[in-house]
Design a protein around this nucleic acid. Structure first.
Lengths: 140, 140
DNA sequence: ATTTTTTATTTGTGTGTACAAACATCAAAA
DNA sequence: TTTTGATGTTTGTACACACAAATAAAAAAT
């Protein structure tokens, strides 16, 4: 392994993104049965938890820019899974019955994903890693 | 914190991507003086290390799809930092003098980035995290 | 009550990345 | 030697984001 490659593997930017790409691929597969990308699915879950929530709050919960949430929600609406009611400057997002109906599938997908990477990394190890990532993410 | 949010923070997909987005922002800033995105910059370093390298090898070293490398290299060429010579089915990428001239700036940017996140996470902690990410990434 | 500032959301646009298909070449087998 | 299959690369296309600017409404200050 050459010099630069050594640098790469000691670089948080590089390793974090490499891992993110791999786990994203895995997550995409796990959530495919739900017909949604993981981020879309998490939005569904959050809206279920807090009906009437707006893009800003969703963005904070998901670590996504509000504009990104807007687009995601728009596609959920387009697929008949959510609705939004704009009153004044705020937007209240809620699930349609079709959206609510997806919750079981989504939860199952999430469990599938968790199992799949836990089997590879080890349950304990995976959880530790996740916790450290979460902490680091908050700090940065 | 509601139920779903709890799930999120225990999800490797979510935490890994959240961290990746934050560190990417930081890296983009650090590499801005070089006028390149971090990935472009790393390609420059790798090509310097191994002149004549092709997209496939680069992709393997960087954990990127070959097609992605093609685009990145093309923009490097467009900016006069690299050239490629296609003989048969293989492509040999090399740096131009302008590309070589950037190496110092790139290395400095990388150090800036490293310092910046080490200051926040702690040097030891950051290195441990990076090592674990690297390991997990290889496993998945 | 009017102006100013702040806040919530959306839209325009750009970047990074992937996959699948197309293409071209080399290697192996027939 | 022709065919078959594997390999390296590029192109078409699509998705997940982000930022900056536009919009619009609420809150605060005057």
């Amino acid at each position: 392994m050459k010099c630069t490659e050594h640098i790469l593997h000691n670089c948080l930017y590089f390793t974090a993104n490499a891992l993110a790409r791999k786990i994203t691929k895995m997550a995409d597969e796990a959530f495919r049965p739900a017909g949604l990308s993981p981020s879309h699915a998490f939005i569904v879950m959050l809206v279920h938890d807090t009906p009437g929530i707006g893009p800003k709050k969703l963005g904070q919960a998901l670590n996504l820019a509000p504009s990104t949430v807007t687009r995601f929600v728009d596609t959920l609406i387009h697929r008949g899974l959510a609705t939004k009611k704009m009153t004044g400057k705020t937007t209240a997002i809620t699930l349609t019955p079709d959206g609510e109906a997806l919750l079981g599938t989504i939860e199952a997908a999430w469990k599938t994903l968790h199992t799949r990477y836990s089997d590879i990394l080890g349950e304990r190890n995976g959880e530790e890693l996740t916790a450290r990532l979460d902490k680091a993410s908050q700090l940065l």
